[in-house]
Amino acid sequence: MTTTMYGITTCDTIRKARVWLEGHDAAYHFHDYRAEGLDAKRLDDWVGKVGWEVLLNKASTTFRELSDKDKQGLDEKKAKALMLAKPTMIKRPVLEVGDRILVGFKPDVYQAAVGK
């Protein structure tokens, strides 16, 4: 089963999740979407599995810096366009474990999904 973590290297939550995975000998690939980008098909897949409301991090600095116009009237289409334009608005980390998607870092959830 392939495990891929999506996020940005400078994120504290990403660091904690990576330390947890490495401490539990869980093999994974890291995809920095600030450096490597994020394609619309993958985002569509995530939204289909967990919903755009779960993925869009309204507490992020990037989201808070948006104009009021951009924040108003959020729906799936608008949220996906914002997340593709500025992936740092996506809640971190996003962990793909096979065909499952985990959003955020909770050690107990990681243990159940990838624990050894």
Rank of each mutant, 00 (worst) to 15 (best):
M1Q: 00
T2D: 11
T2H: 04
T3V: 13
T3Y: 04
T4R: 12
I8G: 00
T9L: 07
T9C: 01
D12R: 11
D12A: 15
T13L: 03
T13D: 00
I14H: 02
R15H: 14
G23M: 09
H29S: 15
F30P: 08
F30K: 06
E36A: 09
A40R: 15
A40I: 14
R42M: 11
D44T: 14
D45V: 07
G48A: 07
G48W: 09
V50Y: 09
V50D: 10
W52N: 05
W52E: 05
W52L: 03
W52I: 04
V54Q: 15
L55E: 10
N57M: 08
F63K: 08
S67I: 10
D68W: 05
D70S: 15
D70A: 15
Q72G: 11
D75E: 07
K77D: 15
K78S: 05
A79I: 02
L82W: 03
M83P: 01
M83A: 05
M83N: 01
L84T: 02
A85Y: 09
A85R: 13
T88D: 06
T88W: 04
P93V: 00
V94L: 03
L95R: 12
E96V: 08
D99M: 10
R100M: 10
V109S: 12
V109H: 13
Q111N: 14
Q111L: 15
A112Y: 06
K116N: 11
